[in-house]
């Protein structure tokens, strides 16, 4: 681990991470994941990881990369389970892109849903209040 500067080690800061990059075809989500891991390992707090724009594609449980490829969806759900991390999708951004929870599918009369239950469907309000309550907003 890199040498830590003392004042930052003692003070715990609260981060909100916004992921706008899609699950395949961009490295934004991967870098967001690596950043989030570091925030947590340094003892800081993550209010939530908010998935907006194409970022909502990270929540699709139907992401099926070949076995020799990195599975970002699984990496996010694993990190969330290990750290009790709050992953939130913007519901309107998700619906537009065909990412639905069981409840969304039911309400919109669709036969299937694909959003993993590790991701909560939320509104932009959660992003706004998250920003208000956090020390740092980092977008990817």
């Amino acid at each position: 681990m890199a040498p830590l500067q003392e004042p930052f080690f003692i003070v715990m800061n609260k981060f909100i991470i916004q992921v706008n990059g899609t699950v395949y075809g961009s490295t934004a989500s991967f870098r967001a994941l690596r950043f989030t891991e570091s925030v947590l390992s340094l003892g800081h707090q993550v209010s939530h990881v908010f998935f907006y724009q194409d970022g909502v594609m990270n929540s699709s449980a139907l992401i099926c990369p070949a076995s020799d490829e990195h599975d970002l969806h699984r990496a996010w759900t694993k990190l969330a389970t290990e750290h009790n991390l709050h992953l939130v999708n913007c519901v309107s951004a998700a619906l537009r892109r065909g990412v639905l929870s069981a409840q969304d599918a039911n309400e919109n009369r669709k036969d299937a849903f694909n959003a993993s239950d590790k991701f909560t469907m939320g509104g932009l309000g959660e992003l706004v209040t998250g920003i208000e309550q956090s020390d740092r907003l980092i977008c990817f």
Binding site: Y52, Q53, S92, A93, G123, L124, G125, L127, V128, T129, I131, E132
Partner: peptide
């Protein structure tokens, strides 16, 4: 592109949350 549309949603929601 849809970047501005989603940015506008964010701006208006932030304003309605008293930011």
């Amino acid at each position: 592109n849809t970047s501005s549309r989603e940015g506008l949603d964010f701006a208006m929601l932030s304003a309605s949350f008293e930011q």
